[in-house]
Structure formats: C-alpha cells, structure tokens
Design a protein around this nucleic acid. Structure first.
Lengths: 301, 301
DNA sequence: CAAAATACGTAACATAAGATACAGCGCCCC
DNA sequence: GGGGCGCTGTATCTTATGTTACGTATTTTG
C-alpha cells in the first residue's frame, strides 16, 4: 500500500520554498487548509471557487470524487485537478490521501483542542490529558453491547478461562485474572516461559476462552500461541492497540485501546480501564444470575 | 449530485426492522459504528475482521478504497463488499457516502464528540465517568513537584529499587518494574510468598527505595514488611487509596489515588496512571541526565 | 484597440476501482 | 464418517473515475 503522507508532502513543499529563498520557519504550513489560504490569492477565479468550496466544509468535499467536487464548486473537473496540482500534489489520489492522513491525526488526538492553560510547563498535565483522551476515545469506539457480549462470554461457565499478556501487558492479564479467579472457577493466568504455556494448549478446547493482551511491538511468541489456540477452537478475546495486533486475525472479540501519550512509552491505561469495566460487568452478570459462588463468597466475608 | 445520506439509510433500515416486527424505539441506531457493533455478533469471521479493523480506527479505513480496506483487515476485497452489503448498503460508494455524511455531522458539532449519547443509560458510562473523575481528583491532589521529587528519587542511581504490591495491586508493581528495569539496573519486583521477599530485607539498606502498592483491605503482611524495611532505613514510596494504608506511617512519599467506582470492586486505574506518569518522568530525567544506559538502549533498537 | 497569453470547459482516453462468477475449503449436522 | 451448507479467495469483467488533449472564451498587455 502506497501512502502519501502529509508529512512527506510538506517536506517536499518546504524544499521548494527553500529553493525559492524563503525561510521555512516563517510560514509554517501544517495543514492543507493553511496551504490553501496561503495561496488562494494567486489563484485564478475558477480554482478560487474550488478552494472556497473546499474550505467551506473542510475537508469533506475533498474526499469526494472529482466530479462531485467540481459540481459542488460549480466548475469543471479539470479545474479541480488544476487546483490540486497548484497545491503541489501530483494527482488527485495523493491529495485525498493527504486529507485523510490529516483527518486521522485530528481524530486520534482530540487533545490538541482541549488545552489546559493552567498546565504551564509541567510534565504532568499533558500526560494526564492525553490519558483521559485515550480513554474517552477508546470507549467511544466501544459500545455497551460489545462489552456486554464479551462479559457474557466470560461469565458463562462452560469451559476454562486463560489469560496471558506480553512483555508490558502481562500485568494487565494478571490483574484481570486476580479478580476473575475469585468470582468463578477455572481461571488461569499463563505465566513464565513460552514453553510452559505452550504446553497448556493441550488443556484448551472450543469451550474455553483465551484473553490475550498484546500491544506493539507485537510479540511473535504470542501470535504463534494465539494461532495454535485458535486452531484448537479456543475463543480469543484480544486487548490490543489501535493498530491491531496480528492476533486480531484469530480473535473472536477485539478491544482496541488508544496508547499514544507524550512519553517514551506507550500507555496501557485505557486497556486497564476496559479490563476493570469488564471485571465489573462480569461480576454483575454473575450476581444477576444468582451464582452460588457469589453468595458463598459474600457469606465468607 | 446524488447523495446517499445516513438519514435516508437509517430510515430504510427502520423500515426493515418495522417489517420484521421490531419496535424502532428500542435499539436506536444513529451511527454506522453502532450498527456494526449491533450486528458484529452475527457476522462470519472474515467480515468480523473487517468490522473490527474499521472500528479500530473509525471511520478512516472505510473512506479508503476497497483494496486498501481489505489489505488493512487482511481479507479479500469481496469480503469487504459482503461486509458492507450485510450492513444494508447497496454498494460501496453508498457506504462511503454514509460515512462521510456522518463525519460531516461530527465535524460541524464538536460537542457531540464528547460522549456517545446512546450509552447514557448503559453500564459503561458511569464506570468510565467515575474513573475519569477519579483520575482528575487524584492528580488534583498531586503537585508537579511531588511527582518530580519522586521521579528524581527513582532516577538517582545510588541504591536498588524494590517493588511490591498487594493481592490486586501486585500487577501494578509488576508493570512499573517491567519498565523501570529496562531503563536502569537493580530494579527488583518482589513476588511469591511472604517468606521469600521477607528474606530479601537483608539486601535492603538506606540507599534503597521500596515502592509499595497497597489499597484496602490493607494486607497485614505488607504492613509488617514495610515496617521492617523502614527500620532498615529504606525509603518507601507508597501507592494507596484515599483512606491511606497504615504503611503511610512509614512512607517517605505517599500517593493517594481515588478508587471508588460503581462496581463491586475498587478501581486501581488512577494509581495505574500515576505509575505510568512516573515511569515517563523517570525516563525523561534519565534521558536528560544523558544516562549511558539510555543511549545504549536506543542503539540496540 | 489588437495581439498574446492565460484560463476554462467539452470530449475522448486510459486506468483503476468496484462488482460478480465460480471453485475450493472448512464446518456443522445428521 | 459422510453429505450438505456456508464462507472465503482467485480471477474476470464492467463501470466510472481521474486524466489529458484541444478548442474556445476571457483577460491582460503593449
């Protein structure tokens, strides 16, 4: 897949500007909208109409076809193409890809708008803000029904439940296992070396559930393990990041959490909260089902 | 210009539902994302993978071409087309137009981006909202300076760093240890039975740091351990809940996180985020100090 | 005012996109 | 264990999209 990124594009543009003797630091062009308003003055009438229609409801018109764009602007198709050519794009698809990349960046970090002025300089606030955004975003892509389905699958006691995680996410698997193991039997956290849990595959069948935590860099050992478990008919519930671990290929349910934070490390906090939410949901379902074990537990306390 | 609006589409869908004897008021479908998660359960494996990849970074993948979509999902083009057909769209362009219309509505009213209104009555929102509140509250009582001090203490390489947690918080200790152990030497997570880590006390002295996670019900074993470590001059950093574990008595630094959520369990999410923030801060400090280990690490990658 | 240059649209073209037919495969049920 | 059903991918076809060439209109300049 060839992707024409905005970054690459802007770099090229800066190249041109530098060649023309301009200093890149002065007019920073970080979005196509700015690029347009920067050059709209030098455009002929038709292309200006195209520019204005695009800006009017940016960036949607640019994502449609050339024909639709031209109709919306009231000009002909070639004018649209000349317009995007003047912006520096080689062809229309490249232009659209740039718009999409820009949109992706916007949608993935809503943090850019919610700037807390009180957070002057401190290293804490950006981290917290990003984390909060990640959680909101994560849950925005997660419906009640999905969570309820997954919780129901975890709550139904047909088979065993196995949990496993990667290098940094294994603690999440442990955390979830620690809770689930209390409210229901046959919950196992797979720990230690690969050879150890690989041998546990023998115990797994199509009635069982395997919960896997895997964020990039995705671990080959986990992928292999997931594949084999999948072949055995085990239902896989995957916690991963928004780029989806290759395990998604085998998973019955996929939970994609946002992980980007201003830090050297990725954040698993959003996945952690999803895990807690699921733990609560499973507990509630078991309570509602009047599970004997729950009553016994309460009497023990 | 022919525009296939989402509104029109939903109307048609409601028509089908009404014909099938369902009442439209019960499951309101106001976005394609909801529509997908509503039907994802009834989909075959391949189409479900398509659905999951689309949801993972919604709605961008849906705006790309069928070929790109299929490549991202790891399935073939026809599967993508069958997927959109199952959602009720006549063809792929109609599907894309619906996504674009939805996007347009979102971009015009950024307020609607805050939360999924349909999840108002569900069990998710209260949990998420409580968690977010907990984090804000936790960080409100936590100054930048406090965190910076703790991070500095963890970053200075005079002695060893030990981490330990309670029944449910031990995974947090593991998570933190997994990161810290990478960027600096002599980081040890204390696991297993009490007798094991009690014996490790011999290794601990006043140059060392002990990070303890303990929320209620506070574990006696941890309190005893903390007391003995304190007597040996070990500096204790305590992660606890707002009611403060008795260990706070011995601790040099105390981080009190909010734990209350509408669930049968307490939430450790706020503490988790503090831990991540600290991990990031320590990393940054070590980088700034030009630690050789960090450079070596980067060259290894 | 005339001539040149530029801009714009119509129409034909080539390419790449979406749609379809069909065969292989796995899965479930009997 | 065998037969049937359903899902999935390969290959082919068709559509429509982006692209280009060219002639006309419009503006600009000497």
């Amino acid at each position: 897949m060839i992707s024409y990124s905005l970054v690459g594009f802007v770099k090229r543009e800066f190249g041109k500007m530098a060649a023309a003797g301009q200093r890149a630091g002065e007019n920073m062009i970080s979005s196509i909208a700015e690029l347009i308003s920067d050059r709209i003055g030098t455009m002929p009438a038709g292309e200006r109409r195209a520019a204005q229609t695009l800006i009017a409801n940016y960036p949607l018109t640019g994502l449609k076809t050339v024909a639709e764009f031209s109709a919306a602007a009231g000009v002909s198709s070639p004018t649209i193409l000349r317009f995007v050519a003047r912006l520096g794009f080689q062809n229309y698809p490249e232009f659209q890809s740039a718009l999409q990349d820009e949109l992706a960046a916007q949608l993935q970090s809503p943090a850019s708008r919610t700037l807390n002025p009180s957070s002057a300089g401190g290293a804490v606030s950006p981290m917290l803000e990003a984390t909060l955004d990640n959680m909101r975003e994560t849950f925005r892509h997660l419906t009640d029904k999905q969570l309820a389905d997954i919780a129901a699958r975890l709550a139904e006691r047909r088979g065993k439940t196995f949990l496993i995680g990667g290098r940094f996410t294994d603690p999440l698997a442990r955390y979830m296992a620690a809770h689930l193991a209390i409210i229901q039997p046959d919950v196992y956290h797979l720990a230690g070396q690969e050879s150890i849990w690989r041998d546990r595959l023998i115990d797994m069948g199509k009635r069982d559930v395997l919960v896997i935590f895997d964020i990039r860099r995705y671990q080959d050992s986990l992928v292999r393990f997931a594949e084999k478990a999948h072949q055995r008919g085990v239902q896989i519930i995957l916690f991963t990041d928004q780029w989806l671990s290759p395990i998604a290929r085998f998973a019955r349910h996929v939970i994609a959490g946002r992980t980007a934070v201003p830090s050297a490390w990725d954040s698993s906090a959003a996945l952690f909260v999803v895990a807690e939410t699921l733990i609560g949901a499973v507990t509630r379902q078991l309570e509602a089902a009047g599970a004997k074990r729950i009553r016994d537990l309460e009497s023990l306390r």
